[in-house]
């Protein structure tokens, strides 16, 4: 204990938070869709940043809020939306990949409880190599999501801050 405190608070803090900073995978912009009544499936979306020098593949995920989590993608073919399960999502070295509405998503199947706007869902993401990555995602209704997207759009248009 005494030897630890000798390191000083700033250094201690740096050590404590060094885990995520050293990892090659960072997750941002995560959210999970709120569920309308009677629906026990949902979708999770986020952006994966692969800051490392190796290609990585998202191979699966789990959460205590759903019996099953699968990787899914949407494709639009001749105006018809098709949702299918996929085995993995590759994120090349030094690249980002966004799981976004209308495209790739984590499908949460067999929810243990309804997901309400403002809830939080902890997701454990597995990659082809390296440690699992844990991300806590807020639950948003499609409405909230639209408001957020609008704000992002507005910020883009009115971005005059120094």
């Amino acid at each position: 204990m005494y030897s630890l405190s000798r390191l000083g608070a700033p250094l201690l803090a740096a050590l404590m938070f060094s885990g995520p900073a050293l990892a090659d995978i960072e997750i941002s912009d995560a959210f999970v869709r709120a569920t309308p009544p009677g629906v026990d499936v949902s979708a999770a979306f986020f952006r994966v940043h692969n800051t490392g020098g190796d290609d990585r593949t998202l191979t699966g995920a789990s959460t205590d809020k759903a019996a099953t989590v699968e990787l899914h993608t949407h494709s639009e073919q001749d105006g018809v939306m098709k949702m299918r399960r996929i085995d993995g999502i590759e994120i090349p070295a030094h690249h980002d990949h966004r799981l976004a509405p209308g495209g790739d998503h984590l499908m949460l199947i067999g929810l243990t409880q309804p997901l309400v706007d403002g809830d939080r869902v902890e997701l454990t993401l597995q990659f082809s190599s390296g440690d699992p990555v844990i991300v806590t995602a807020p639950v948003w209704s499609a409405q909230t999501e639209m408001d957020v997207e609008n704000r992002i759009e507005e910020n883009k248009h009115h971005h005059k801050m120094p």
């Binding site: 869709r33 309308p36 009677g38 629906v39 026990d40 499936v41 949902s42 979708a43 949407h74 939306m81 949702m83 509405p101 209308g102 998503h105 499908m107 949460l108 209704s141 499609a142 409405q143 999501e145 639209m146």
Partner: peptide, 17 residues
């Protein structure tokens, strides 16, 4: 369909909005 997790709720939210 209701268990459509993405496209349907988004479209219905657009309608409601």
């Amino acid at each position: 369909y209701a268990s459509c997790p993405d496209v349907c709720p988004t479209s219905l939210a657009v309608m409601a909005q």
